[in-house]
Amino acid sequence: MKFSIGGALKLAFRPWVEGLENIPAEGPAILASNHLSFSDSFFLPAVLDRKVTFIAKAEYFTSPGVKGKLTAAFFKGVGQLPVDRSGARGAGEAAVRSGIEVIERGELFGIYPEGTRSPDGRLYRGKPGGLARVALATGAPVIPVAMIDTERIQPPGKVVPKLMSPGIRIGKPLDFSRYHGMDHDRFILRSVTDEVMYEIMKLSGQEYVDIYATAAKRQIADAEKAAKEAAKEAERAAKAAGGAERGGDR
């Protein structure tokens, strides 16, 4: 199923890719990518000859009905791995365990260090809990990946994608074996994560923002809410002023 989906994606969207030679022909590796669109997890595996396993929320695999079964089959077919994300700490531990299991099988593990999609196309601070812990616990190389223009193909909230060519840049593997076993040292985790994010920034050309994407989303949501409230208040004030003027004309 992976090859049929990948073939269809390549035929329809014709993604371009640089740095394929940096993906090992065999053996484990961690692919650490920026995250611009829901479709990132489909385009990256489509251009690779090897299977890439990403983690996805368990709800995609457990929804009832025919639609739920089709969704589950699709996500399994493209290499998504269900993880119960109920509870922030439990979600992080589950993601780390899943990543380690994939690496121990000698496979490719895909992860988005930002933890969620970018709300505005910029690159946000990486979370050290997943990527760095898996890398240091296993000694697997980390390969930085930059997705290009996928947010234009399928912006958040849009179901039907635009037919245009996204890009994928794959960087050289990063070796963190010198820190092997230090996966509980928060300073080392932060340092490893920041080094990977720097390489992703160079590959993607994105503006870097040194806050978490989840915090940025809250800020954006709060600003939108405040703008709506201000617009409503202005509308109420305008109506009140109009009523006062009509009252004065009597």
Rank of each mutant, 00 (worst) to 15 (best):
F75W: 15
T193Q: 00
I23W: 06
G87Q: 05
G129P: 10
H184K: 11
G92A: 13
G171R: 09
L20C: 12
R117F: 02
G243W: 11
S177E: 04
G171Q: 06
E26H: 04
A94D: 06
A56E: 12
F54S: 02
A58L: 06
L48P: 14
A215H: 11
R14M: 06
T150Q: 07
Y208N: 09
I23Q: 05
F75T: 14
G68E: 06
N34Q: 08
R133F: 03
R250H: 15
T71Y: 09
S63F: 06
R14K: 14
L48R: 09
D175V: 05
E114W: 02
F42Y: 11
L20G: 12
V83G: 10
A231P: 01
W16A: 05
L136N: 08
A72P: 09
P24G: 08
G248K: 15
G79I: 06
Q206M: 13
Y124P: 05
V17E: 08
V160I: 15
R218G: 03
M147Y: 12
L123E: 11
L81G: 01
Y208S: 09
A231N: 05
E151S: 15
R190F: 01
D49E: 14
A29F: 04
A132W: 02
D120Q: 10
K225R: 13
A231Y: 06
S39E: 08
E235F: 09
L9M: 11
K158S: 09
A46E: 07
E224M: 13
K228R: 15
F187C: 00
A25C: 10
A91G: 15
L36V: 08
F38G: 01
G243L: 14
A140Y: 01
K217S: 08
V83C: 10
L11M: 12
Y212M: 05
F3T: 11
F54T: 03
G6T: 01
P155T: 10
F187K: 15
A241H: 12
R236H: 09
G68S: 03
H35N: 08
L123P: 10
I143D: 04
G129F: 13
V17H: 14
G167V: 07
V142K: 02
K228C: 00
I170E: 08
A213S: 05
P64G: 00
V160H: 09
L108F: 01
A58Y: 10
I111M: 05
